[in-house]
């Protein structure tokens, strides 16, 4: 911990491990509340400069970290869903700004308009030129409305498709960052063909001649996620979820009430470890202790390294091999038996 003194006022630069001081705690993190309060008090006392509390602060920090490790050791499906929706979790643009240089955002589907819930553009990740696309959520009420809560309309999917075709033309890998509670279920969305827009993307992505890397960074709900989710590598951040329906909606349909969302999250097997076990994704990207929001810098670094590694691997394959392997991978997904 670094402490600066300026005219008797002390500024404490907090190391990343204790950044959650200001953070929103999730309900299962409640055991930490008291410890954090104590830590805040100790730091305040220390800051006044009369008593040296640095030992207590160090001890409490360690204690909090241990407790957190315990809490995060065996997370349930529902708890991971909660982490994936944490209001401070990094969103697509946070990753783009941290990982890429020279990001040039490209707007519009050349047809109806520009969807703010789906963003995309050209960027450089070190020396790789890439097309990066993803759903974008907002941080506050105003932003959330502007981004439509990360729920794209058909023009969002058509913008994504346009950018992918452009990437193919200029031989650039495509990176898709998935974070959506679903495609928008609105009246205009239906009029403009939400289903058709997603379906076309699935078809285009299946045979796109450049590498596609998809990463579920938060929520991966149903067709809205899959609409930019057909890739050579489909990866999930450790605490993200990916399924055919959100646990709440699943609970409503199967048990006719929201009260069974924990159970629904469990039976849907929507966590990264279960998705990998079922061979529906290609890998898991570990998150820092306490989730991506707890140490964003670390998260950015990990994701960047992972993306670079995959871009390099995939660029070595020819486009024909790439497309064949991609189609073969998705063709294998399923669980059935031939009882003839």
């Amino acid at each position: 911990m670094t402490i600066f003194c300026f005219n008797s006022i002390r500024f404490i630069l907090l190391p990343p491990q204790v950044r959650w001081l200001m953070a929103v705690l999730l309900d299962f993190e409640k055991p930490l509340e008291e410890l954090i309060e104590q830590l805040e008090k100790a730091q305040a006392t220390h800051a006044k400069g009369r008593v040296d509390m640095s030992d207590t602060v160090a001890q409490l920090t360690k204690k909090i970290n241990n407790e957190r490790k315990n809490l995060y050791k065996d997370l349930t499906g529902w708890q991971k869903v909660q982490i994936s929706r944490h209001p401070e979790r990094p969103y697509t643009l946070d990753y783009i700004n941290a990982i890429t240089k020279n990001f040039v955002e490209l707007h519009g589907d050349r047809n109806v308009g520009d969807d703010k819930a789906m963003i995309g553009g050209l960027a450089k990740i070190d020396n790789h030129n890439v097309m990066i696309i993803g759903q974008q959520k907002g941080r506050n009420t105003k932003e959330r409305q502007y981004r439509n809560f990360g729920m794209p309309n058909p023009e969002g999917y058509r913008k994504a498709k346009r950018l992918m075709k452009m990437a193919e033309k200029f031989d650039m890998p495509v990176i898709c960052l998935i974070d959506t509670p679903g495609a928008f279920p609105g009246l205009e969305a239906e009029e403009r063909g939400q289903g058709e827009a997603i379906a076309k993307n699935l078809m285009v992505m299946a045979t796109l001649k450049v590498p596609i890397i998809c990463v579920v960074i938060g929520e991966g709900a149903s067709g809205g996620a899959l609409g930019i989710g057909v890739g050579d590598r489909v990866l999930m951040l450790e605490n993200s979820w990916y399924s055919v329906i959100s646990p709440e909606n699943c609970s409503t349909i199967l048990w006719r009430s929201w009260d069974y969302k924990e159970k629904a999250a469990d039976v849907l097997s929507l966590t990264s470890d279960k998705m990998l076990k079922n061979k529906l994704i290609d890998g898991i990207i570990p998150e820092p202790l306490g989730g991506a929001h707890n140490d964003p810098e670390m998260m950015f670094k990990t994701l960047k390294a992972e993306l670079k590694k995959n871009i390099k691997e995939l660029c070595e394959l020819g486009s024909k091999k790439l497309v064949n392997a991609r189609i073969k991978k998705f063709s294998k997904m399923g669980s059935f038996s031939d009882s003839a």
């Binding site: 699935l202 055919v244 039976v267 063709s331």
Partner: peptide, 17 residues
């Protein structure tokens, strides 16, 4: 729903075909 993400991936599979 009872096949969750397995059923989701059938969308990708049939579209790829």
């Amino acid at each position: 729903m009872m096949e969750a993400a397995f059923s989701l991936m059938q969308m990708a599979k049939t579209s790829a075909k």
